[in-house]
Structures are given as structure tokens and as C-alpha cells.
Design a protein around this nucleic acid. Structure first.
Lengths: 146, 146
DNA sequence: CAAAACAAGTTTGATCGCAAACCGTTTGCG
DNA sequence: CGCAAACGGTTTGCGATCAAACTTGTTTTG
């Protein structure tokens, strides 16, 4: 999932995973490897959810980041990165975008002058609530397949 | 699993998913979303296998591509792309690298002058056999977790 | 307590992947 | 038959992500 990536994110029509008409391609042992199927599943999940999130202009990882911030107000960027499995250098621009869009609020930490604390703004909470509905709906479908 | 990605690929120590010392971060509903967990699992799987594949200098996706070519000699690039869920424009450089390394052989298709046919070379088969051992071992561990 | 090790956040560089544009070929249909 | 639409492969542009280097601040340790 790396390549794009996050389980829940941006909009993309997808040109890669297209079913392909009556095509017979043997995957051999690949068909049974958990890692390989994980990749396909993750990719499919990503693309499906992306349709909804994308309508709100949300890019990969934004949804997951907002979820974590919502449930952990005051969390730092580093901790957020660990929670969503993203490098801290990836979190920096991600947060900057959410700040620019007025979805999160950033305050210097009183306890540790190196770090900052994050929380969602009212607008952020509102958008998250809206997205969560779609996410759960999407997830129920996905869960049914597993 | 975009960003890099592919379930089975290149070498990387990983700085993102580090466990984090006694840290309590609530994932909220995120913890139950299939898509989110799929992402984490795929990422972990990718990194774990990467250690082995990376030793052979294999980049993301190469292993999966070689597996499919092995089991489908004469397959075209487009069909390969569909099998491993990669865009055709991603397959082009991937195949060029395998060609350069002498792992695959490429011949113009006799049936369709637009396409090419792919098959592994002796060296390609040898490397694949070697990697497959590690992949299956890795997969058994992964499967045990699921 | 001072030095060394470590952590938070940013910047910069490299890589992988998709998407769109493009060319040549093939196929489908009127 | 003839032409439009679809397809195979390549090229180019862009976005997401990680890694390493750096700065500032904190913790550990001798």
C-alpha cells in the first residue's frame, strides 16, 4: 500500500485493477500468499472509499489522521504519525494542509517545547462526522467480503 | 499501500510504523474499520518481506511480476499489469529493469504487433526459486497472525 | 551537572505509482 | 470496405511517501 496508499483516502478512478475481460492469468502460489492478497484488498478498499472522500477534496491519509486527532485531542504530530503508520516527515505537509483548510487547530505544547498539540476545529469535526458515515457504510460492504 | 507498496518487495528499515514506547493513542472506530487495518497489515507485510527481497536488490513489485510471468509464460505487459494490479505505465519501467538485469526475456508477439510476450530467463527462474522460499516462510508467519 | 543520547518537527532528495497524452495496431460495426 | 473506438506500450507530469540531515529541546548518565 505503499503507492498510494492509506486505506481510506483520495479520489482516483483507477486504471490498474480493472478486471480485464475474459482473461485467464494464473497467479500460481501468488494466489495463496497472504501478503499479495492483502495488497489487492487494500488497493481495492482504497479506491472504493476514495470516491466518497474525494468528493470532499480529501487526499490520502487525511481521513485517518482526522479520526485519530478527533479521538486523541492534544496529540502530537509524532504520535499521530505512529498511529497512522506514516513517517513524521509525511505528517508535516499533511497537517499543514489541514491547517490551511481550517480543519485542525495547532498549539505549541506546554509540556514539551519541541512538540505541538493538535485538535479538530468545529469545521473539522463536522466534516469528519460526514465522512464517517460513508466510511462505515463502505466498511460494512468490505467486511462482508472478508 | 500505495506509496510504495506491493505486498512483496524492496528493502527498507521503516521509520514510520515503529511501535512507540508506552504510548496510548486511541484509534476510535478506526480500530474496527477493515480498510484501515488492511492498510496496516499490508504495510507490515511489505516491510517484513522486503528484508529478504531487498537483499537480492529487488524493488517493489518485482517479485510479484516474476511470479506471474513464471506461471504465464508469453503473457503480455498489459495482462501482467492487470494481474498484479499495476498501471501499464508502471509495468514499462519495471520490465525494463528486469530486462536489463537479464531476468526476463521479451519478444514481439506474433499474433498482435502491438504487444510483446514475456518469459523468465534461466537466471530469472533461479532467482525466483530462491525468493519463493523466503516468501512462503514469511507468509506462513503472516498467515498465523490472521 | 555536563556531555551524550534521544526525540519533535522541518526541509530536501529520491523513488514508486497513477493518469493523461500520444502513436501504432486491431477490432467492431454500419 | 472504411472509419471510429478500443487496446498495447511508451513518455511525461505529478502526488504521496520514506529517509536522511539539521535544529531545537529533553532525558539519561557518568
Amino acid at each position: 500500500m505503499a503507492g498510494q496508499d492509506s486505506a481510506l483516502a483520495a479520489a482516483r478512478p483507477s486504471r490498474a485493477a480493472e478486471p480485464a475481460r475474459g482473461e485467464e492469468v494464473s497467479l500460481g502460489p501468488l494466489a495463496g500468499l497472504v501478503g499479495f492478497n492483502l495488497r489487492l484488498a487494500q488497493d481495492a478498499s482504497f479506491r472504493a472509499f476514495a470516491r466518497h472522500a474525494g468528493q470532499k477534496g480529501l487526499k490520502p491519509g487525511r481521513f485517518a489522521a482526522m479520526m485519530v486527532i478527533h479521538h486523541n485531542p492534544g496529540i502530537t504530530q509524532a504520535a499521530l504519525g505512529r498511529a497512522i503508520a506514516r513517517d513524521k516527515s509525511t505528517v508535516t505537509p499533511l497537517i499543514q494542509e489541514l491547517l490551511r483548510r481550517g480543519l485542525v487547530d495547532r498549539q505549541p505544547s506546554r509540556a514539551d517545547r519541541r512538540s505541538v498539540t493538535l485538535k479538530l476545529t468545529g469545521a473539522g469535526e463536522a466534516m469528519l462526522a460526514d465522512l464517517l458515515q460513508h466510511a462505515e457504510e463502505h466498511d460494512r460492504k468490505l467486511d462482508a467480503l472478508v
